[in-house]
């Protein structure tokens, strides 16, 4: 579990990772926390479409634009 940290946007479909940090502005960070996207959370990339993604977070699935996916830093699972 000590992989390198990279933006979520760079992961390809099928990859699993844990969120390391969310580098968005405060409002967005609070919103993402409400959606369950906060540090230590396990995510799985389901569909990667040139930067925008669909990820599973817990039981929920979200579509993220590249803008947000670049701000969510993750540590890829070994």
């Amino acid at each position: 579990m000590t992989g390198a940290v990279c933006p979520l946007a760079l992961l390809s479909a099928g990859t699993e990772a844990t969120v390391a940090d969310v580098r968005a502005d405060r409002g967005m960070r609070l919103r993402l926390a409400g959606m369950g996207l906060c540090p230590e959370v396990w995510v799985r990339v389901q569909c990667a479409d040139w930067g925008s993604l669909i990820v599973s977070v817990g039981d929920a699935r979200y579509a993220l634009s590249r803008g947000i996916a670049m701000k969510v830093l993750v540590r890829e699972a070994a």
């Binding site: 929920a60 979200y62 579509a63 634009s65 947000i68």
Partner: peptide
Amino acid sequence: SSPFIMEM
């Protein structure tokens, strides 16, 4: 454009 996130 502001970044977006949306539940599927």
